[in-house]
Amino acid sequence: MEQRLFLLTLLCTTYAAQQDLSEKLFAFPLDKGTSNVKLFASVEQPITALTLCMRFFSSLSRGQSLFSLAVPSNDNAFLLYKPQIGVYRLHVNGMSLDIHGLPDVTDEWNSVCWTWDSSNGFTTLWINGKRSPRKILEPKATLTGAPSIILGQEQDSYGGGFDPNQSFIGDITDVHLWNSAISPCEIRSFMEGSAFVPGNVLNWKNLQYSITDSVYVENSDFDKLICF
């Protein structure tokens, strides 16, 4: 009986569901160092530009990982990390920079978009309708190899190496990823909850994912929240 329960648990945590998650969210309610969601994507190689958009709701003041993309040669290939309230850390190909001064809030929904283009290295972060100054991060870099994409944990090795002190606690919804730097108009539409072209790498309306440990799919309470 115990062996059957173990096999059933293993199947439940490794099975990759694919579904439309419109009006749904991933809830990470427990302070556990293993809870995560793995996202599956087919990406043209090599990766030379990306845009990430997502929304999150959290009470945490400590550091936490919002989005972690690793490739076999680099565990911080494209990582959005929040070391503290009001600070976002962008990692590309192992290099990083900190963004300060954007309208970051706790216990409310935050809408985030991050663009990076290796042709000139330009990277820009948008939080709740306000953008950072354009910065340069890893110009001419390319990300190669099958990506490992994780929500809720930072990968310190390809597909693993999680640190409980960097885990996410809260809710995540509307995760989209493009293999280009999308336009400010598209970003504005996402921020305002208006119609936009979904991500061509990760699409929340057609998402393939697997859940490990205490993560739950719940109804979203984000309803075109306009706070800018």
Rank of each mutant, 00 (worst) to 15 (best):
L5M: 11
T14A: 03
A17E: 10
H91Y: 15
A141E: 07
Y15D: 00
V43S: 11
P184S: 08
T144P: 15
A27I: 02
M191R: 04
I127F: 02
L102H: 07
S22I: 07
Q84R: 14
A41E: 11
D107C: 11
A17P: 03
L143Q: 02
I169D: 03
T115C: 10
P46Q: 11
E23W: 06
P147G: 06
P83M: 13
D213Y: 01
G94D: 03
S65V: 07
Q45F: 12
S180Q: 04
E154R: 05
L8T: 14
N120P: 06
N76V: 08
T115D: 06
F162G: 01
A195T: 12
A16D: 04
K82S: 09
G193E: 02
Y216K: 05
G101D: 06
T173A: 09
F6P: 03
D104K: 06
S61D: 11
F190V: 06
R62W: 03
L143P: 01
G199M: 01
V92N: 00
D107G: 13
G63Y: 04
N203T: 03
L21N: 13
G199T: 09
S111D: 12
F28T: 02
C185L: 13
G199Y: 00
M54S: 15
L90D: 02
L177D: 02
L21G: 12
K24M: 08
S65L: 10
S214K: 07
N219D: 08
Q64M: 10
F222Q: 05
F196S: 07
I211P: 00
H91K: 04
S61A: 08
D174C: 13
G33Q: 10
G159D: 00
L80M: 14
G170C: 07
M54L: 15
C227N: 14
E192H: 15
L60N: 12
L52T: 10
E218D: 08
T9C: 07
H100Y: 12
R4A: 12
S61T: 14
L225H: 12
P133G: 07
P139E: 08
F196V: 09
L50D: 10
V37M: 02
E186L: 13
I172R: 00
N128I: 15
D213G: 02
V215Y: 01
T9S: 13
D98Q: 12
C12M: 09
A141D: 07
K24W: 01
R134C: 13
L90Q: 06
L7F: 03
L39S: 01
G160M: 03
N128P: 13
K205Q: 14
S111W: 00
N110Y: 14
A195E: 11
K32C: 07
G152C: 02
C227A: 08
I172C: 05
N74F: 03
S22L: 13
L90C: 08
L25M: 05
I226N: 09
P164C: 04
L125M: 11
S96L: 04
C227E: 08
I187S: 01
G121W: 05
C227I: 13
L177S: 02
V105Q: 13
S73Y: 04
L79V: 15
S183L: 10
P198R: 02
G160K: 00
Q84C: 13
